[in-house]
Design a protein around this nucleic acid. Structure first.
Lengths: 230, 230
DNA sequence: CCTACCGATCGGTAGG
DNA sequence: CCTACCGATCGGTAGG
């Protein structure tokens, strides 16, 4: 990888994947931009714009990122972004809601695997950590910027979040009822476990000594201990 | 309390203490603002401005808050804020650095109380949770907006954070060495415990059924279990 | 995909 | 403490 742009660095605020830079450069003779459609190579897609926004939103926050910066990252002029998006909020909505739906889907799949609360907590925690390690940028944007979604998307996002919360707590409560777990409060235990997992996105480094699976394994142990699993 | 403005509501994004509204109103006859210095009652202080900024930054983020909003919250015009502050970033710096110094001080006091790693972890966790429940707004701003500090304050804030991280991990490592704790990784355990505590600021409700001390007690148990305390 | 341009708002200053 | 005002930048549109 010649420019190293796919290399994840360790520090938050500097360690996120950088947006793809196209090889088409400004024409130094005329000062004009080449028409991308007239040269070889791919055109910018909505996915490219989304990816650039994802990186920048994760790094600087939604309100700390301008569309000009997004445009620069994909080597377009700001108005050209509107060929791919409806608005700045549209980008945020796409990122946040897609991510929350994915998290809920993964969660339900984890639960469906077996009916034992201990097994369910193990799988749900593992996949949740894995998600936050692998999809760091998405997780950071969801955590930082969900509040900035316009309605009705804010309500939709909050509903998805609450669903995950409720189902997670339910698993712990069922474990308590089954005599497998023992906690002062299923609610506080679920809050603690979930936030512990979420925070992995803030420091995880794919280039570091620990793989996402390593971290997920350890955090699953943390969760089992926290709920007093026998 | 007549206007209920000190009442903390449960939901994040709506439940933070609202800034103090002074009783001096716009003169409805002339449309002009009364000179606060010529009437009875307190003048706006820097502390008032800081408090209003604290609430708004916690609610909408640093870049999501305008100085006009801060000014409105203390019933001033925007330029008048500059009698109390040097810049918008000045407000953020005050909030973030003061909070981080306090957290470190509280932490060191907790450690000084005894030399037993288990006792140290208990006290450090307890005070850390308590801080995040009692100073929700400060904690939210530190977590959301530290990244937006200009240098050299950003570096200073990061150093204070790393110090807390390092010392916290040290306590866990010492507990492991003493045979009191058992963890796969002192680093991951300290990350997990700290972030679990920090997240309390996101949902704690002073008007809810659980007191800050209740939550701190439960989270201290979570921490002890997580590190495998005997 | 671009250039040209829009009104609104931003943080901040001058001057009283 | 205010009014008046500054240049810069914002998200977004018109029109090709």
């Amino acid at each position: 990888m010649q420019d190293g742009s796919r290399h994840d660095e360790p520090r938050l605020g500097a360690g996120l994947r950088r947006p793809r830079l196209l090889s088409v450069e400004k024409n130094m003779t005329t000062g004009k931009h080449l028409d991308r459609r007239s040269v070889a190579g791919p055109t910018v897609t909505r996915a490219d714009v989304r990816d650039a926004a994802l990186t920048l939103f994760a790094l600087r926050g939604f309100h700390g990122t301008s569309l000009k910066q997004v445009a620069q990252a994909v080597e377009l002029r700001t108005p050209s972004l509107y060929n791919h998006i409806d608005s700045k909020a549209d980008l945020l909505q796409d990122i946040v809601l897609t991510t929350l739906v994915e998290v809920n889907d993964e969660f339900e799949q984890a639960l469906a695997f077996d009916e034992d609360p201990r097994g369910q907590l193990e799988r749900a925690t593992h996949i949740y950590v894995l998600h936050h390690a692998v999809h760091r940028r998405e997780a950071l944007v969801v955590n930082q910027d969900t509040q900035h979604l316009p309605e009705p998307f804010l309500s939709e996002a909050q509903a998805l979040r609450r669903r995950h919360e409720r189902r997670f707590r339910q698993v712990i409560a069922e474990g308590v009822d089954a005599g497998q777990f023992e906690v002062p409060s299923a609610k506080l235990a679920s809050f603690a476990v979930r936030e512990m997992c979420v925070s992995v996105a803030r420091w995880f480094d794919a280039a570091g000594p620990l793989s996402a699976t390593d971290v997920a394994d350890t955090y699953t142990l943390h969760a089992l201990r926290l709920v007093g699993a026998r």
